[in-house]
Amino acid sequence: MALKGNLRDFTITQLLNLINLARKSGTLFIEGPSEKAQVSFQQGKLAYAHVAGEDDSLATILYRANKITAAQHRTIKARAGKMSDKELGLLLINANYITQQDILASLQAYFVSVVQRLFTWVEGFFRFENGAAPPDGKITIRMSLENLIIEGSRQMREWEHLQSEIPSLDMALKFTDRPGTNLRNVNLSVEEWRVVSYINPKNTIRRIARTTQMNDLEIRRIVYGLLQAGLVELVRPQGTAPKLKPSLPGKTREEQKSLVNRLIGRIRSL
């Protein structure tokens, strides 16, 4: 029986737990709301992970991990662009540019970051293909899943909490009118400042997330902090039609006001 289903019914954390306990080897393919990913396992251990459309070449991963410089990255891309990751890894180790340990640590950090992103995917389809290996030429690791599962469970709890606090990303934010609040006196991180700079009743939270390249979890974390601090409030985005329209009988405004006044009179008399 194929292992496939919907993330709504079976979460990433539950899938990792199953793969870990059953010591499965194969590849998990996941189709999220806007992205696709694949994660490979060897005997229940994490071997490889990749989000479709992302540059996961060894050179780029090493550059992002500050193991090689921007100039070295450019040179490698230009001269060894067709080389597989395994070939490039051997070349760099033999040339004493980098150690095997650096390569494995950088790959592990990248694969873990991919899996952590998957924890925020609560919608989408998955299928596990037994025995399916990572793409040819890719370097694999062997990492136990237990810590990832614990971290995933934490993130799922946080995600549920944030989702109940901020149910819709289609709402906009506006600065509160509290007197005496000055943003300059508040200590904000770089990421928070980036979000703050886009706060405007015209911009939905989803649009801010897209512009600042944050995922749902990241933007919710920041918005939640700003809401908790009382710096912003949620408002309907300006210029957008509401899903539902209020309905009041009566053609003219005067007729409608008269109707509301009749309601008021009736309730007073109860």
């Binding site: 109940s164 606090e165 901020i166 149910p167 709402m171 309907r236 509401p242 899903k243 539902l244």
Partner: peptide, 17 residues
């Protein structure tokens, strides 16, 4: 209270009433 806040935000999103 948290649930109440969430319900309020949800209904605010439905209609500008």
């Amino acid at each position: 209270f948290r649930e109440g806040r969430s319900i309020l935000e949800t209904f605010k999103a439905y209609a500008p009433t």
